[in-house]
């Protein structure tokens, strides 16, 4: 496996730190006037999402992390695992609850998600920025009220509960921003 020396560290580089795949955020050169040169490096741990700081001697190397981001189609949930497929090669991938995380709220069959693979295994699932989902349950709509700004909860086909305007009815398809979990608009069929 390739490795990178501290002088090659730059933002976005994927390396192994304490055996975990990490993405470099920041790399700072530190040196006492009469001493050893170091690099103080900030990382995001791609497994936990946590940001951490480590110090290395300048010139030391870290192993590259075999991390790859690929678009994969979501197929189905078998009750335990989530199944994805590469539309070009038809190769299938199985992701567990941990790597899917909050993305589970927005996974709709046949949607294409970005999957971060580490050594070929799904590490993180990022849903599309916008998804169209059907409302499966909400209180009856209030006609004419399109401007008051009041909202009510609605359950979507994926099980996610979001806030929607009062005029929304069951069976309607809504556009949702997955980064904020917010209602964007109705989708005309």
């Amino acid at each position: 496996m390739a490795s990178f020396s501290t002088s090659e560290f730059k933002s976005g580089l994927k390396v192994l730190v304490d055996h975990d795949p990490c993405s470099i955020i920041e790399n700072e050169f530190v040196k006492p006037g009469k001493g050893q040169a170091f690099n103080r490096v900030k990382f995001r741990n791609l497994k936990t999402g946590r940001v951490m700081e480590r110090t290395f001697k300048s010139g030391d190397s870290l192993e590259a992390a075999d991390v790859l981001e690929v678009p994969l189609q979501y197929l189905y949930h078998d009750g335990e695992h989530y199944h994805f497929m590469n539309e070009q090669t038809f190769e299938q991938y199985v992701a567990d609850d941990k790597s899917v995380g909050d993305a589970r709220n927005w996974l709709k069959e046949q949607d294409v998600c970005t999957i971060t693979l580490w050594n070929g295994q799904p590490l993180m699932v990022t849903p599309p920025n916008f998804v169209n989902l059907t409302v499966t349950q909400t209180d009856p709509g209030v006609r004419g009220d399109t401007a008051s700004g009041a909202s009510k909860p609605a359950t979507m086909e994926t099980g996610a509960v979001i806030k929607v305007p009062l005029f929304i009815d069951e069976g309607e398809v809504l556009k949702i921003d997955t980064r904020t979990g917010e209602y964007v608009s109705r989708v005309k069929e």
Binding site: V17, D18, G35, Q36, M52, E53, R54, T55, F56, K57, D60
Partner: peptide, 13 residues
């Protein structure tokens, strides 16, 4: 524990 990873060349490092 302070976040250093690597081998120390010597005590002063």
């Amino acid at each position: 524990r302070s976040g250093f990873r690597g081998a120390l060349d010597d005590r002063s490092a």
